[in-house]
Amino acid sequence: MHIPDGLLSNNINIASAAVSGGLFYYFNGRLAKTIDDAGLNIAGALTAFVFAAQMINFPVGFGASGHFLGASLLMIALGAPLGFISMSVILVIQSLFFADGGITALGSNIFNMGVMGGLVPFFIFSGLNGAVGAFKTRAGFSILAAACAWISVFSASLSCGLQLGFSGVAGVKTILSTIVFIHCFIACAEAAIVFVLLNFLTAVRPGLFEKYYKSFEDKPAETAAANR
């Protein structure tokens, strides 16, 4: 879903870059206050993994392929500030060194994959994770994360389609229906990958996710919610 140069209108690129840049500045500032070397190590490793996993395109039928997005995984594992920085770093490196995603469209790509594909599903995830008891078990946690991974690809393709439509690539309705249709299938794969990865990670390294369910297992729901 990496938009190349020359596809979107300048206005859309500038507006998206302003939103993405502003969020990067904000999260960077928040992170600077609570920076923690151990957390950054794991962030680096996970970011590198998501980057590598994004290289593997899998066929989804209709002559199209898709690849892992990983934004929801990064946000859930690292939290919104570090997750957003990590996703932005991947997109910047892909754009500058790998010609994957245009430099002028970088702001739009960060908006689509970092904000719509990352922050939006993450806030849905944290809201439901804190509010619904069933999501506080390990299985419930993984299912909720997988659902948010599906939403992640869906909402990213939605905003990508709107940007393409309003840039005049094709009619808004036409392009939206096509891009969202194909990404619904890619989203299923994303959800499956996130489900398997989180099941594995929570089994071998439960401490990584203790922020979500150590508190759920040790304390009743009301206490966990009050501690947030």
Partner: peptide, 16 residues
């Protein structure tokens, strides 16, 4: 081993 098919975005643009 990655699929050589166009990704979701390229596929959409090619269609239109």
């Amino acid at each position: 081993l990655a699929s050589q098919n166009p990704d979701g975005l390229d596929w959409t643009i090619e269609k239109h």
